[in-house]
């Protein structure tokens, strides 16, 4: 077994030489998490805004659910999607289990509540301030939604990036519904878990480094974006 020092050097080499196995895993991770976040954003932004602007029966329950699901443990999300997609489940006929699509669905389930709940909060706060002025300028409530989303863009982008951070860092959900199949559903987090347990430290370390850099970059970008926008917009 290699020493940790050696493992580091080999890991670094894997990254710099763009090792095909490592690259494949990184690309699949990105593809899955970005798709999940994109879908969650397309649903979450209008959903959050609608919940913020309209009163309807069950609204309180929906808000409570969204907030509660923000902290949904990834393994539980994975289990839920597994039950839906397994052969006996309601969506079993589509044969999605152990495919990247299943992983996208599971991560979407993890990220959607975050985006929708935080969007509701942001839009509701803005609406308190804007409601009379927008009505005065001739905007309907529905027409106010894109206006509010745009004016809340700084917080919303931060929210979406937070969602991406959560999606790309979780193991439990993708492991359960993806199965960590080599070359098909193996992503960074599941690969790290497996390779570490198998003792292949260089690949685990290499992936760990890439994942860490990615998440750090995303968080850094969110921070810088917020700062510069705040400085600009007052």
């Amino acid at each position: 077994m290699e020493s940790a020092d050696n493992a580091f050097i080999t890991a670094f080499h894997l990254i710099v030489s763009m090792d095909p196995v490592l690259t494949g895993i990184v690309l699949l991770s990105l593809q899955v998490s970005l798709s999940a976040v994109l879908i969650a954003t397309l649903i979450g932004l209008p959903l959050g805004a609608a919940v913020a602007l309209w009163r309807f029966p069950g609204r309180g329950l929906l808000i409570t659910l969204l907030n509660a699901f923000m902290g949904l443990p990834p393994v539980v999300a994975g289990l839920m999607v597994y039950l839906m997609l397994s052969r006996a489940g309601p969506l079993g006929q589509f044969g999605l289990l152990f495919t990247p699509t299943a992983m996208v669905i599971a991560q979407c389930l993890l990220v959607l509540p975050i985006i929708a709940a935080l969007t509701r909060q942001v839009v509701e706060d803005l609406w308190k301030e804007y409601a009379e002025q927008l009505k005065s300028l001739g905007a309907s409530r529905a027409r106010a939604i894109p206006t509010l989303l745009w004016d809340g863009r700084i917080s919303l982008v931060t929210t979406v990036l937070a969602g991406f951070g959560r999606a790309s860092a979780e193991v439990g959900a993708v492991l359960i519904v993806g199965g960590n199949i080599d070359g098909v559903t193996r992503v960074m987090t599941t690969a790290i878990a497996l390779e570490t347990s198998r003792g292949d430290l260089p690949l685990a370390l290499g992936l760990g480094l890439v994942l860490m850099l990615m998440v750090a970059a995303v968080n850094g970008a969110a921070f810088l974006l917020g700062e510069s926008a705040r400085r600009q917009a007052g």
Partner: peptide
């Protein structure tokens, strides 16, 4: 309302440029 206008004590300006605010209505 589109044929009227109102200016409030504290104007609510959109988080955009001055020009974009004027263009908004």
């Amino acid at each position: 309302r589109r044929r009227q206008a109102m200016v409030f004590q504290r104007p609510v300006l959109l988080r955009r440029s001055a020009r974009a605010n004027v263009e908004y209505p």
